[in-house]
Write a protein that binds this DNA or RNA. Structure first.
Lengths: 343, 343
DNA sequence: TCAAAATTCCAAAGCGCTTTGGATTTGCTC
DNA sequence: GAGCAAATCCAAAGCGCTTTGGAATTTTGA
């Protein structure tokens, strides 16, 4: 069923039917009802392609997920993020277009999305510190919004970020308050902006408390379970082992816990652990009382909000780019306790 | 830059330029070269919408991810699967369109994709045993391919599945060979087809070995870490605790291990564990020697292949639906060992 | 009651591409 | 060099929609 058929069916012109369906005022309430009714029964909806051609809008947002050869891993955060973004899109009649590409192709992909006029804007995932995509997208004139931030960047752009620095600063402060002085960090890859900021928060807390950062207690890598395990294991094997560990992801934290328990130690008593929790649906942090003390911020909610920001920006290109900084909450679970006394 | 401008620039007609770009034979090699060259320098690619409108194809595949209220979780398998599928699409010039929807809306979504002519076909994720989407898509006449299978279904359709039953049968057999007789099952939600099949494999092995399934040893739920933990904990608290546990996901297996170690037991010695491993990128199963003995099948590879099957089916609608059954391999890690002797 | 103002509708152009049917040019054959 | 096939190109229609610029009808005001 297309517009022509539908309008013939109703004995109206295509114009009128189109206007009725798109809420234009120059059509009487009675005919509008009649048209809507008919559209429903005939199961008519306008072809996205034709509509897009006619209006010059794509009614679609692109998500480009880089798959770096350096870290051949789909960020697990991603599934929940797009679930959130998707809610916003479907509420607003937008389609979500996904490209997962080796990152050496990324430039070409953005070029392509632009020149094929396939999307009205894009969401940038996983920004690194000096992210080349931001100037590129500016140059292409393709509206965009970033999940996270790029520290090194002159021109303003739209972003939504969790306050990574503050979250890790506060959490580390919390460990100091519990009496810990040797605190390890199991971080993500530190060319990623979020990891860089978390580390800053961590070291800021250390120096606030007169502690010099010890390279032996600072790890950075892909946040797998195994990485958490290996990192914690090595730290705990030190003569001067840490009594607490800050961890950048729940999955790595599971590995950290494994290393602790393997050594016959008890998490929350011998070694305290704080993790960042993205509230991923398949990784519920315990039941009533959370297992891990964690800095928490829902990535799904972030998806919802950032998508909305991008749609607003597209709607209203004149407005200066919006930004939003979400604060993580610190939930106290069973994985932290007072620093053990020195024997 | 559009076709018109490009062709004016070249002093050719739109027809010729279009034909040159699309590889039609009625254009000389020389002009073809010239056109391709120009397209490259002017960064031209045809508008997907216009092309779609003219050809009647969408050049896009839809992935509809249901977000059940029953299990408000984004299947973690999903990220890797679409990474695989995405590779195939981009190689073939297709776009991937993602909709994440509450599953009561799912019917409407498929209707919409069809009537808006937004996609040429869809991939069905997470089939349940008697999946209503299959007859629905048949009725709509929207080409589709299923990742997994629906046990209860008359009409043939395209699918790609891992041999869940066989994987779990063989793995359970392996445990029997090691001398285990009390074997637990920590399964996914059993209205999901894959979980149902795994259970069948498990019980088939039990009855092959003359063991009656014990409901106390069979758990089914969302495959979170916590679910694994709670399930294993309860099983291990039994008088007649299992000496081995089959587990449906690596994430739950991490929870199972936690329960084992919390009890002061050693995995692979006191309690053996076999998990299914979807080879998710962020959950590497150990380094050189895998931690878990596991049935293994890459879901990313599945994505690649199923996407190709769907594209083939779209290309060639006459051909009967293709199907493909992948066998999982059994990799032996450190989590299994001979059944402990009874004291 | 009649002109002016609203209201309600429509024909046709245009969005950027593909493709049909035909026109023009080139290359060969004799 | 005439005649014909092959090679090369083009104008125009059509894909399904929106939107412009009016036309036809109804309502309103004095």
């Amino acid at each position: 069923m297309n517009l022509k058929e539908l309008s013939q069916n109703l004995g109206l012109s295509q114009t009128t039917v189109s206007r009725a369906l798109n809420g234009y005022p120059e059509v009487s309430t009675a005919t509008r009802r009649r048209v809507e009714e008919a559209a429903r029964t005939f199961n008519y909806s306008p072809s996205t392609r034709a509509k897009g051609l006619a209006t010059g809008k794509a009614l679609a947002i692109g998500h480009v997920i880089p798959l770096s050869s350096k870290h051949e891993m789909v960020n697990p955060v991603f599934g929940d993020f797009i679930a959130g973004a998707g809610e916003t899109y479907s509420r607003n009649g937008y389609e979500m277009i996904l490209s997962i590409v080796p990152d050496e192709d990324e430039r070409r992909i953005y070029q392509g999305l632009k020149s094929r006029r396939a999307v009205d804007g894009v969401i940038v995932h996983g920004p690194v510190m000096d992210d080349p995509r931001i100037p590129l997208l500016h140059k292409l004139g393709l509206p965009f919004a970033v999940h996270g931030r790029a520290s090194v960047n002159e021109t303003p752009y739209a972003w939504l970020d969790m306050n990574n620095r503050n979250a890790f600063k506060r959490a580390t402060d919390f460990l100091f308050d519990l009496g810990h002085r040797r605190i390890g960090l199991v971080n993500g890859l530190e060319f990623m902006d979020f990891a860089h900021r978390r580390r800053n928060g961590y070291t800021a807390s250390l120096s606030d408390h007169g502690v010099t950062p010890d390279p032996a207690l600072m790890r950075s890598g892909e946040m797998t379970e195994d990485f958490g395990y290996v990192s914690a294991r090595q730290m705990l094997a030190l003569d001067d082992a840490p009594t607490a560990i800050m961890c950048s992801s729940m999955i790595s934290a599971l590995g950290v816990r494994r290393a602790i328990e393997e050594k016959g130690l008890v998490m929350g008593k011998d070694v305290s652990v704080i993790s960042h929790d993205d509230v991923l649906s398949y990784l519920k942090n315990g039941g009533d009382t959370p297992i891990f003390t964690a800095t928490r911020s829902s990535v799904r909610e972030a998806g919802r909000q950032l998508a909305q920001m991008l749609l607003d920006a597209i709607e209203n290109p004149a407005r200066p780019p919006q930004t939003k900084l979400l604060e993580a909450e610190l939930v106290v679970g069973c994985s932290t306790g007072p620093a053990p006394r020195k024997d």
